[in-house]
């Protein structure tokens, strides 16, 4: 069940170029958040729409959740001015997230692109706790945009790609995938639609899950702003990203 809450900002810092990490305290973290779910944040009264931001980590006992966001416009720019001790209007947790109970994976491959990386961290942490082996492939624009490499190293093997070659592999995450053939049974990916499309194509035949980004309105499933089409065989014709997703099986949606 989603709640609206004024959460306390416990910690806020820049972790990479245009990328910030924030730790929020309140009741929402205790409500059984699944990896892949998001919080819908109202930056302040100067903004009319909330911003959906995925959850990168949860500490239920401490009542905290961690988010990472990238400055992409006026709203996220204003969010950077928030300081430790300030309060933030948060609606959450939104969406369904990854279906943790249904997973049959023994060896998981996490594939994240840019600001799509954070939800995979909370997922990876839960998978490792369940004794599942985790390999991560992370893609960023360039070296100065990289974050959370250390956190993913704690989960297992990590491969990093940068578009400009300033760190790790020069190119895209999809370049790294053929080399990992046979080392995983299920993949989990979050990032821009173009990356998700390439990943699902490259990994056809594997069991997979994609977490989709989109501009949202209400974030609760009422406004139909963030829909994704489904294959022709599906009578409904669409899924709501905020309510039915943001995590989908690749065969469930048309990217």
């Amino acid at each position: 069940m989603m709640k609206r809450e004024w959460m306390d900002i416990l910690h806020h810092e820049k972790v990479a170029t245009d990328t910030y990490q924030m730790v929020l305290n309140g009741d929402i973290p205790g409500s059984g958040i699944r990896p892949g779910q998001f919080v819908h944040i109202l930056v302040d009264d100067n903004f009319f729409l909330r911003r959906p931001i995925s959850i990168a980590d949860v500490d239920e006992q401490a009542g905290t959740l961690t988010i990472l966001y990238k400055v992409l416009g006026k709203g996220t720019k204003s969010l950077t001015a928030k300081q430790q001790g300030d309060k933030l209007d948060v609606l959450g947790p939104g969406g369904n997230g990854f279906p943790m109970e249904e997973l049959k994976t023994k060896r998981a491959l996490l594939i994240g692109g840019g600001i799509g990386v954070p939800p995979l961290h909370y997922l990876g942490r839960q998978l490792v706790e369940q004794g599942i082996e985790v390999i991560s492939v992370l893609g960023f624009q360039s070296k100065e945009y990289i974050f959370f490499e250390k956190q993913f190293n704690e989960l297992g093997e990590v491969y990093v790609a940068t578009n400009d070659g300033s760190y790790g592999h020069h190119g895209f995450v999809t370049d790294i995938l053929p080399g990992l053939e046979g080392r995983f049974d299920t993949y989990f990916s979050c990032g821009p639609a173009v990356m998700l499309k390439a990943v699902s194509k490259e990994l056809t035949g594997y069991d997979g899950y994609l977490s989709i980004e989109e501009r949202m309105g209400c974030g609760v499933g009422a406004c139909f702003a963030c829909v994704v089409p489904t294959p022709e065989s599906d009578a409904k014709g669409y899924r709501k990203i905020c309510r039915d997703g943001p995590v989908f099986k690749p065969e469930e949606v048309v990217l």
């Binding site: 009319f48 989109e214 501009r215 309105g217 406004c223 139909f224 014709g237």
Partner: peptide, 21 residues
């Protein structure tokens, strides 16, 4: 049944928003 328009379907504006669902 109607599918509606392609996404993005919303954009924030000063004191409001645009939508084309």
């Amino acid at each position: 049944q109607r599918y509606g328009n392609p996404t993005p379907r919303v954009a924030e504006t000063s004191s409001g928003m645009l939508n084309a669902i």
